[in-house]
């Protein structure tokens, strides 16, 4: 009996241990068209500078970005809004399958901007940041001048603003870098599998299924590059009591992702429309990003319709430079933000 009690007490202690900063920051829920979407606001709110983080996926969540050195550096200086998009992360509600499309997502972001200005003041500095799928979302959002007027700047990190093009560029990278790695004798079996796959893809007619496989091989290829910097063990913290709900987040996120794909996001190609973005822009890319190849970053650098733009290429990173080169990543973001305050 005593042993059982000890086990129960140990379990109680374990689940009582939480993230030290659970009580810090704000949680604002935005209710819109059948969904309640949480925005977790952490960091230096007195700076009056807010960065809305559009997470990747679709199917990811905002808080999965809240880990590591880069976040500590960012949150010291500015407030970061980790927002869970409709049907993803901790968002809840029931959007109709037919209406769950890009237009609905854009409307959600409009409302989030109104909410943040209502809560923190119309005079706040507001920056938009998008990583991966967040880059698609953010670029699409900024196609409107009225929407651009709400923000001080746009930060696109490894952003998938042209999905058909990224598939083609990924195949090129598989073939060139893959063959180099095979020639060097690095992970020959794995690279051979990727190169063989790439050779079998008709880049003039890439199917949705092949797009999914390109994405999977892209993540795998990034892991195979030996010279990349990876996040140190001390960079991530996974508190026992965590707002993220991995089970429901992944199941609901997958479903939302599938619906968005059925409703046409795979066809979003904004390269030819990048000139519409007149907002100061910072582009952040990993040199070995096989998921969203650096060529999309070079395209954006050339085509975005402002002279106030900069591309930073991280030499030792893949799809997530914030993990391996977090210190430099945060410094680049903060430098850009400080240069574009009102």
């Amino acid at each position: 009996m005593r042993n059982i009690l000890y086990i129960i007490l140990a379990a109680l202690c374990l689940v009582s241990c939480g993230d030290v900063d659970l009580k810090q920051g704000d949680v604002l829920y935005l209710r819109s068209k059948g969904a309640d979407m949480p925005a977790y606001v952490y960091g230096n709110m007195s700076s009056k500078t807010f960065m809305i983080l559009l997470h990747g996926g679709p199917g990811g969540n905002g808080l999965e970005y809240r880990g590591g050195r880069y976040v500590e550096d960012l949150e010291k200086e500015i407030a970061v809004v980790y927002w869970d998009q409709r049907g993803q992360g901790n968002s809840r509600g029931n959007s109709h399958k037919e209406t769950l499309d890009m237009d609905l997502l854009l409307d959600d972001l409009d409302q989030l901007v109104v909410l943040l200005k209502n809560q923190y003041g119309n005079d706040i500095n507001l920056f938009l940041y998008g990583h991966s799928w967040g880059g698609t979302y953010g670029t699409k959002y900024l196609m409107s001048e009225a929407r651009q007027a709400q923000f001080n700047g746009w930060i696109e990190s490894n952003g998938a603003h042209d999905i058909p093009r990224l598939n083609v560029e990924a195949i090129k990278m598989f073939l060139t870098i893959g063959q180099d790695e095979i020639d060097k004798g690095n992970n020959v079996t794995d690279w051979q599998e990727i190169v063989d796959f790439a050779k079998g893809v008709d880049t003039t007619n890439i199917t949705e299924d092949e797009g999914g496989q390109i994405n999977q091989h892209g993540h795998k290829a990034g892991e195979l590059i030996g010279e990349l910097k990876t996040a140190g063990e001390d960079e991530f913290r996974m508190p026992f009591r965590n707002p993220s709900d991995m089970i429901s987040s992944s199941i609901a996120g997958n479903r939302t992702s599938n619906v968005l794909m059925q409703n046409g996001i795979e066809d979003i190609a904004l390269t030819d429309s990048l000139y519409k973005i007149k907002l100061p822009t910072l582009l952040l890319w990993g040199k070995y990003d096989f998921v969203v190849p650096p060529q999309l970053g070079y395209d954006a650098e050339a085509l975005i319709g402002t002279t106030d733009k900069e591309l930073v290429m991280y030499e030792f990173s893949d799809h997530s430079p914030m993990n391996g080169e977090g210190e430099a990543y945060a410094a680049d973001i903060l430098k850009f933000i400080k240069n574009h305050l009102k």
């Binding site: 604002l28 829920y29 935005l30 819109s32 309640d36 809840r92 409302q111």
Partner: peptide, 22 residues
């Protein structure tokens, strides 16, 4: 019940939704 204040935006106005949840 949502663990945080819930708001909705109607015609550009922000309104608090009490006891919001699913």
């Amino acid at each position: 019940f949502n663990a945080g204040k819930t708001f909705k935006v109607q015609d550009g106005e922000v309104k608090r939704v009490r006891f919001a949840g699913q």
